[in-house]
Amino acid sequence: MKRMPMETLQLCADLISELDQQLTRTKAIAQLPAERLLHRTDPDKWNALDVFEHLNLSSGIYLRGLERAFAEQAPSLRATPTFTPGFIGDYSTRNMLPRADGRLVWRMRTMRMFDPARQHGSDHESINRFIALCEGFIKLLQLAPGTDLNRMRVTSSLGPVIRFRAGDAFRFPIAHQKRHFLQIERLLAHR
C-alpha cells in the first residue's frame, strides 16, 4: 500500500480527539464498582484492570521514547507541515485498528514484558496511570506541529532494532489502545 503524506496538524488533531474519547471513557470506568473491573470471562483471561495495565506497559515505552526525543531531538528540527508514515510503523498501525466490519486481524500473543499477570498485576492505580499516560501523549501532540515527526525517531516496543518515526510512535500505541478498548467494553458489558 502506498504511504501517503498526511497533514501534521490534522494528524495531531485526530490523535488528540481519539485520546480525549479514551480519557472520557476511562474516567467513567474508574468509578465502576470493583467487582466489574475485576470480572474475567475465564480465570486465565485478563480483566479490565489487566488491560489498562497492559496498555501502561506497552504505550509507556512510546511515551517515554517520545518524551526523550522531544527533549533531545526536537529543538534542532524544523517544523514540517506533513508527515509520511514509515513502512513498518504504518503497516503495524493499520493492522492494529479493527476493520470497517469490526473484525480484528493480527491476533497476537502478548510478550511477557507486557503481560500484567506475569509482571506485577494490576489494580485501581492502573487506571490512574493510564489517564496520566494519555495526558502525556496529548501534551506532546500539542507540541508536535512545531517539529518534524518524520526525522525524529523513537525506539519501538518491538525491540531496539526497529525505530519508528515519531509520528508512528504516536499512531501505533494510540491505535493499540483503541483496539483494547473494544476488549474493555466487552469485559464491562458482562455483569
Binding site: 473491573l37 484492570l49 495495565e53 500484567p116 509482571q119 506485577h120 498485576g121 494490576s122 489494580d123 485501581h124
Partner: peptide, 11 residues
Amino acid sequence: KEYAFSRGAFI
C-alpha cells in the same frame, strides 16, 4: 473507598 486488586498485584 473500595479498591480492586487483580491477583499478583502489590497492595
